[in-house]
């Protein structure tokens, strides 16, 4: 108890120190007992700068290939014939196919280059809205049945939309006010909570052990983990969503995963996206 309080006070102190140097100090921390996304983000960036002195933070959008030289070469060769290309083409076709009412996705998303707007906290709905949800909202508005969140169709659509959104800079609005801060804190908590029989938090592998190897596999940094989805993975032999990757990372430590687009995973995506603010979108991507 006492220890937690002291640590908490320490964190607060750390937080306020970095706030002083941050250009956009806000009243956030006053209203919400110590939840300080700006300070968290700065602290995480500082951590990775120290951990990977030779890797510009921006470069973490390429995951382990940011620092694993051997794997990077193979990956660059692979990118000469991008394995996600078919998914992008299929997605373009789906995107242009009209609904039964004669309208279509372009009526909701224009040219489709909207990935940079998601995820965001929607004050009206009081929850985090992701691109996948927005796609199903668009369908519902036009009388279409929702797509399965773990299905092939939605992942092809997001592959196309990610492709045309390349280069947009992640710019999640600073979580302020009760709802956004609670969602942010829930995502941060999920990332830092040990789960599964093997007792790992996301941060155990992607912060604490970032850059190290598990068996032959290097571990990527959390920064940049959201920039490039969906991903074509050779293990999956297909493109898959960020939430499918969350599922796998939960499962591999023996935890029962959560459903795609569950509140847990959306809050997690929101938190990670805020951490990655300033990085460029570069999806879809390929990974082992």
């Amino acid at each position: 108890m006492v220890r937690t309080t002291i640590l908490g006070a320490g964190l607060l102190l750390l937080g306020s120190v970095s706030l002083v140097s941050a250009p956009l100090a806000s009243e956030t921390s006053d209203t919400n007992s110590g939840i300080d996304p700006q300070a968290d983000r700065q602290a995480l960036r500082d951590f990775y700068t120290q951990r990977f002195p030779d890797v510009p933070l921006e470069e973490h959008k390429n995951g382990v290939y940011a620092f694993d030289e051997g794997a990077r070469e193979q990956w660059l060769e692979m990118e000469d014939f991008p394995p996600y290309e078919i998914a992008v083409d299929d997605g373009a076709e789906l995107y242009e196919t009209p609904f039964a009412d004669g309208k279509g996705y372009p009526d909701c998303f224009g040219d489709g280059a909207v990935k940079g707007r998601y995820p965001h906290y929607d004050e009206v709905r009081s929850e985090v809205v992701t691109l996948e949800m927005a796609i199903n909202d668009c369908r519902a508005d036009h009388g279409e049945a929702p797509l399965a969140y773990d299905g092939a169709e939605i992942t092809r659509l997001t592959a196309y939309m990610a492709y045309v959104s390349r280069g947009q800079i992640i710019d999640v609005a600073l979580p302020e006010g009760e709802g956004p801060l609670a969602a942010y804190e829930a995502g941060k908590r999920f990332y830092s909570t040990r789960r599964g029989q093997l007792n790992f938090a996301c941060s155990s592998c992607h912060v604490q052990l970032a850059g190290n190897r598990l068996r032959a596999e290097r571990l990527s940094a959390s920064l940049g983990q959201v920039t490039h989805w969906p991903v074509y993975r050779f293990k999956w032999q297909d493109v898959g969503s960020l939430h499918l990757r969350f599922n796998e990372c939960n499962s591999q430590v023996g935890a029962e995963p959560f459903p795609p687009q569950s509140e847990e995973y959306r809050n997690l995506e929101y938190f990670l996206s805020y951490m990655s603010n300033g990085l460029a979108l570069n999806g879809p991507a390929s990974r082992k």
Binding site: L209, N212, R213, L214, R215, A216, E217
Partner: peptide, 16 residues
């Protein structure tokens, strides 16, 4: 154990 530890004659150990 090989996931993190070099040990004995284990192949492809991790270094965590």
């Amino acid at each position: 154990c090989l996931s993190c530890h070099m040990m004995d004659d284990g192949e492809l150990p991790g270094n965590s």
